[in-house]
Amino acid sequence: MAAHPPLRALAIGGSAGGLDALTQILPHLPARAPLAVFVVLHVRRQRPSILADIVASHCGMEVHEAEDKEPVRAGVVYVAPPDYHLLIADGPSIALSVDDAIHFSRPSIDALFETAAEQYGPALAGIVLSGANADGAAGLAAIERQGGRVFVQEPATAQAREMVEAAAAATRAATIAPPAALGPAIVALMTGTAA
């Protein structure tokens, strides 16, 4: 396998049961992690949206809801706002859209993964977590095609298996692991200690 450049970004997507898995992964990332993290979780539209707060309480990194045109910085977790697609544009910077739902989902994991893969190529890792639809599978395959590292939550540990099974099937060499092992795997990639 070709050598990977240092990880610059991590994109995580999940749906039903995804938040639970996410809160097991993020505590592993150090406050000054030298990478940007993008999170799409399918949740109900609400105001004020509390998803970023929940994520922040499990994470040493700075967390906030992504704003349109915001420049992407390392060390920050960007959470997709409910009812907007989160895309990564040149810069890299954040681009939001209210385009039609994809797989009945807005935000769409595929849209995030595909656009992040274009920006970061092999310097990106993607993780698909528990969920009850097929969003994220095409996106994870796109990350893999662009040379990025891909991870899928172990189906046996997922509250809903459809999403992780679809993602595993769509990729060639995804690492399949329980949430507790995914955090350390990312940290290993980040620090260059991965196999």
Binding site: I88, A89, D99, A111, T115, E118
Partner: peptide, 8 residues
């Protein structure tokens, strides 16, 4: 914005 235009 190019990224969403390309998708559309």
């Amino acid at each position: 914005s190019r990224v969403s235009l390309r998708r559309r």
